[in-house]
Structures are given as C-alpha cells and as structure tokens.
C-alpha cells in the first residue's frame, strides 16, 4: 500500500482497527485452512513413505502397475497418463490465476471465461482419475487386496530371508500377492486428493454462477475468486507431491 498515510507502530499494529497482514479476513483464514490441510496431506504422504520403506524391495514398482493409457491396449506406457493428468491440473491452475488477474481488472466477461476453463480442467482431471482407478480395480486392487507382487530382486531377498510365508499365492493369478498397503494407500491418498479436486470444482462452479449473475460486479471486487483460487492452487500443489512420491519415486 503505497498511499498508506497511517503510521504503523509496533504497539498498535495488533491493537485492532487494522489488518496487520494487509489481507482480508477471508483470505487469511483460507491461508490458515490450507496450512492445516498441508498437515493432513503430509501425514498421509509421510505414512506412505514409512510403510513403503518398511517393505524395502518387496514394494511393487509403480511403473509396472500404472502403465496404461486410454485406447492403447496392451502397451507398456508408464508415467505417460499421470504426466498428462499433471499437465491438465497445472493448466487449470494457470487459467485460475488468469481469472484472478481478470478479477483485478473487474472484467466480468474474462473472469467467467477463465473460470469455465478451470472447471473443465478440473472435470477432465477427475475423469482421468476415475479411469485410472477403474483400471487398477479391474486388475484386482482394493482396500484389502493387491495382486501386484514382489519385484525379482525382492523374490530373491524374500527366499533368502525366509519371509515368503507373509504372502499368499492366489490360484489362477500368475503373480505373488503383494503388499496390501500399496493398493490401500493409493486409494486413500489419491482418493483424498480427488475429493479435494471435487470440492474445488463445486466451489468453482458456485463462483462461476455468481460471476455470471453479476454478484461480484455489484460487490465491486472479485475477492471470492482469489480465495477459491488459493484453494485450487493448493490442490494443484498437493498433486505435485503425490505425483512425485507415488509415481516418480
């Protein structure tokens, strides 16, 4: 605030009557909510890391599991589909920030346009995730079951240490049943993130309808777009780490 004529001294900064962080109440609360959500997601990802390392070589290689792409049957295409999902989410994040920028200029038409793009991006991401889930479930994964077994190195190690009795051979399936947390953590982590994306899409639709109806034009500012934008970028941010820890590492 370059034209701020009030002299702020330390003793009265927090005495009320002004905004010490120079952000609105709603935006500050959104930041604090996102911080708490960061802790929730960190718990899930750290739990995932600890369980994964506790299995050592016994953990399936994600590139041998998530190697499908729509309309490409029987081809081994690891990481391609999930990279596409990342592109979609980053792209929708960019359209969101463009909507915020348009809001600063009070351009109702542009805000509505970019909000619509963001909603489309979010729905595309959710559709991709639904496809990925249905593939994985179709291969016998559930919260209590995982047919993706040990790696070759893991089998040798398992035989050497005599822990193969931890795993049961399933008739008719040419694999040793693998660690159950591989599937259950996948569903919980990506499911929790997907639920956030779904909530974000619902919020975006509400903002879009309000923009078209001219609610923010009458209010004189588009701050609601910024607040929901913060949430949407957070969802994108979480996906960056889910992508890194679940698919890349």
């Amino acid at each position: 605030m370059t034209d701020n004529t009030i002299i702020i001294d330390e003793q009265t900064t927090w005495a009320g009557g002004r905004s010490p962080f120079n952000v609105s109440y709603g935006k500050l609360m959104m930041w604090l909510f996102l911080l708490s959500d960061t802790f929730t997601f960190s718990c899930l990802l750290i739990g995932y890391g600890a369980i994964r390392f506790s299995y050592g070589e016994g953990w399936p290689d994600p590139s041998t599991v998530f190697n499908h792409f729509p309309f490409a049957h029987g081809m081994n295409l690891p990481l391609l589909f999930v990279s596409l999902m990342t592109f979609i989410l980053i792209g929708s994040s960019v359209t969101m920030v463009l909507a915020v920028e348009a809001g600063h200029r009070n351009s109702k038409k542009e805000v509505a346009k970019y909000m619509l793009y963001t909603i489309v991006g979010g729905i595309m991401f959710l559709s991709c995730q639904a496809w990925e889930w249905s593939q994985f479930i179709g291969e016998g994964a559930s919260l209590r079951e995982n047919l993706f077994g040990l790696t070759e190195a893991g089998k040798i190690k398992a035989a050497g240490l005599g822990f193969a009795h931890h795993y049961t051979w399933i008739e008719g399936v040419d694999r040793m049943a693998g660690p159950v947390p591989f599937a259950s953590l996948f569903f919980i982590v990506t499911g929790f993130h997907g639920f956030h994306v779904f909530s974000g899409v619902v919020l975006n639709i509400i903002i879009y309808i309000n923009t078209i109806k001219g609610t923010y034009e009458r209010r004189g500012h588009y701050e609601m777009v910024e607040k929901v934008g913060l949430y949407w970028h957070f969802v994108d941010l979480v996906w960056v780490f889910v992508f890194t820890f679940y698919y890349l590492i």
Binding site: S42, I46, G47, G49, A50, Y55, L161, F163
Partner: peptide
C-alpha cells in the same frame, strides 16, 4: 509451521526401520 513437517519426515524415516516387516 512447515518445520514441523520436516521434523516429522526426519522422525518417520528414522523410525521406519522399526516398522520393517522383515
């Protein structure tokens, strides 16, 4: 507050050995 997360990561990596199933 992200410092707490860093501490949590360090702690869980250290304790992860105890979770080992074999």
């Amino acid at each position: 507050p992200i410092v707490f997360i860093l501490w949590f990561i360090t702690w869980m990596m250290y304790e992860g050995h105890a979770l080992s199933t074999y």
